[in-house]
Amino acid sequence: MKKLSDIVSGIVQAINLIITLNPEVLQIAALSLYISLSSTIIASCIAIPAGGFIHFYDFRGKKVLIALIQTLYSLPTVVVGLLIYLMISRSGPLGYFGLLFTPGGMILGQTVLIIPIMMGLVIAALSGVGRDIRDTLVSLGATGFQSIIQIVKEARIAILSAVILGFGRAISEVGVAMMIGGNIRGETRVLTTAIALQTGLGDFGFSIALGIILLSIALVIVAIMYLITSGAIGTIEQIIGGAPRQ
């Protein structure tokens, strides 16, 4: 039983920290969400149009580019951390902006990290739209622009999945957060780096509390994805909205 005592007492302490709304735990969770949501939004603004461009326009080296993007799906977080560190260090080319050890620098790093996977999945989503739909669009006399709009509409759920997956990667990574953020308490300490630090110090309760929060966020993400893909949101909308639609 003694071997389990760390885990049990850790979980008890964790529940206590969460129920009492421990300000430090809340602050760390809020900062994590803020940084990862920001980077997801910025990355979406870049990856979705860029993915669309790559899909809809033919150019030399397109296949190579797509292969390269797919390779970067597994871009190691510490490599991004290293590159961005060298860029934004005060003695680096972007040193003037003083981004190292700030949430802004972490947002930049996570954005760079998740752009490839989002872009790749957007391309895959658009390619997934059936050839027959395109042919139908063309045969109905849709202009190029109109058919692009329609194809994007068809692929919207897969595109949304790409965004959510990017967010998942951003909030769960530790390499960029540690190397760019520096794990500064109250400034750049996020869920993952705090867990790494507190576990190292043997403060398992705090780590478990943060782990539970991180898992809860993941659960919410999965729930949203499930609702969207199963079309349940529309159904809920119907129920809440009241007005029946045909």
Binding site: Y34, L37, R156, I228, G231, G234, E237, Q238
Partner: peptide, 23 residues
């Protein structure tokens, strides 16, 4: 019906973001 659900989701996401910024 899905686009309306989607719009609701985006509005919710924006709301959460603003809330978090406040937090």
């Amino acid at each position: 019906t899905i686009p309306i659900g989607l719009t609701a989701l985006i509005i919710a996401a924006l709301f959460v973001t603003i809330l978090l910024a406040g937090c």
